[in-house]
């Protein structure tokens, strides 16, 4: 049986985005995820990790290979202790931004994965969870 993959990567500077993207790609290839799903997941990773860096002041990405029934996939949890998001509904709208990004990150990333949850406490931090099935 393949050893379970469960690890954490620190996102503290721009270069870490590349490290996160590459690690997600490696794991996706390892579990046999197709190229389109891989590309979608890596792109979503890049969006959320960048948001965490720019708006959350950096944080941690937890990567885990999970199975549910016959399905296998990758779960990514991005956690920062930044200022939090004042209005999540607004932040999930296409084109809404408070900074120098395009405002496509959160809503775009949501469209690219199978499961997406976001929790944010104003003043305490934000947690975004992504799940992409191998064949999903």
């Amino acid at each position: 049986m393949m050893a379970t993959i469960r690890e954490s990567l620190i996102v503290q500077q721009e270069r870490d985005l590349v490290v996160c993207r590459n690690r997600v790609k490696e794991v996706a290839v390892k579990i046999g995820m197709g190229i389109v799903n891989q590309t979608k997941l890596i792109t979503a990773t890049s969006e959320i990790a960048r948001n965490m860096l720019i708006y959350g002041g950096g944080g941690v990405m937890r990567l885990e290979v999970i199975t549910r029934g016959k399905q296998e996939g990758i779960q990514l949890v991005f956690e920062d202790k930044g200022p939090g998001i004042a209005d999540i509904q607004k932040a999930m709208q296409d084109g809404f931004t408070t900074g120098r990004t395009l405002g496509m990150g959160l809503p775009g990333a949501k469209r690219l994965v199978n499961e997406f949850t976001i929790q944010s406490t104003f003043g305490k931090g934000t947690t975004v969870k992504l799940l992409k099935w191998k064949n999903g």
């Binding site: 389109v36 590309t39 979608k40 792109t43 395009l102 496509m104 775009g108 990333a109 469209r111 690219l112």
Partner: peptide, 12 residues
């Protein structure tokens, strides 16, 4: 091709 598919779903 996978990048093109992703870009459209991303909304770009």
């Amino acid at each position: 091709p996978a990048v093109a598919i992703t870009l459209i779903e991303l909304g770009l």
